[in-house]
């Protein structure tokens, strides 16, 4: 049985890196006593696939990984067992049975993600900004300088911003997140600040990921569905 787990990372758990989060769940699955499938060999490992690694410092309400079990277990039982052994800040939101095929791996499905960006205290832009978000989003192109290890190049990130709007005193973003067009929320807000004529301050954002989506539509007509919604409950 292939299962997709959705979990949160809040509070101090945001300081746990991606690899350590994987290790954390490997141990948690053992503690939960679930019938996890292993690869063979002298150092067998769990058959797991994490979607979209989360940077250290970012919190999340929608992290995902897929894993394989040797037997069918009701999804509510999986949720209960895992939640009985979680550390502070990490909670399993759901377990869903998903189709068992290579193309359905959590990692390869990721097309978009939602974020909430908050300015840390005293690090907000010095000009009025909340009311400018819509205008910025209405631009037809937003060029930024993208630095890679070897070069710098100008890219238009506007096509990768699917949504941008104020939410309370925070900014809501829906951004492209596939491996080819993965767009960091910091990059967008930096561009926004520069467009406002402000220089982004060091260490000014607290970012939260809200959800990760697959695209069940087409390139021109996106139809985003959360990774969770692609699976189903099993009794």
């Amino acid at each position: 049985m292939k299962v997709r787990i959705k979990f949160t990372k809040e509070g101090s758990a945001k300081f746990i890196g991606h690899l350590d989060t994987m290790r954390y769940f490997q141990k948690a699955l053992r503690r939960a006593g679930l019938p996890v499938a292993f690869s063979g060999g002298y150092s067998p490992h769990m058959i797991m696939s994490f979607a979209a690694p989360l940077g250290v410092g970012t919190t999340s309400l929608g992290e995902y990984f897929d894993l394989e079990l040797t037997q069918t277990v009701p999804t509510s039982v999986i949720e209960g067992k895992l939640n009985s052994t979680m550390a502070e800040g990490i909670r399993v939101l759901s377990a869903r049975a998903v189709e068992d095929a290579k193309a359905s791996k959590a990692m390869s499905l990721v097309a978009a993600a939602d974020y909430l960006v908050e300015f840390r205290e005293g690090k907000e832009p010095e000009v009025p900004w909340l009311e400018k978000i819509e205008e910025f989003f209405a631009l037809s192109s937003i060029t930024v300088l993208k630095k890679t290890k070897r070069s710098e190049k100008e890219v238009d990130i506007r096509p990768y911003i699917y949504e941008m709007k104020p939410k309370g005193s925070q900014v809501f973003l829906k951004l492209a997140s596939a491996s080819a067009n993965y767009t960091k929320p910091e990059l967008v807000i930096d561009a926004f600040q520069k467009w406002l004529g402000c220089e982004p301050k060091d260490f000014c954002y607290q970012i939260q990921r809200l959800e990760v989506y697959a695209d069940t539509g087409s390139e021109t007509q996106h139809s985003f569905l959360s990774l969770e919604a692609l699976g189903e409950k099993i009794e």
């Binding site: 141990k27 979680m86 550390a87």
Partner: peptide, 17 residues
Amino acid sequence: EILLKVDKAARYIGGEV
């Protein structure tokens, strides 16, 4: 800010299982 600057912040946060 400090925790994100130092190496392996998880050394200092506690909260382990």
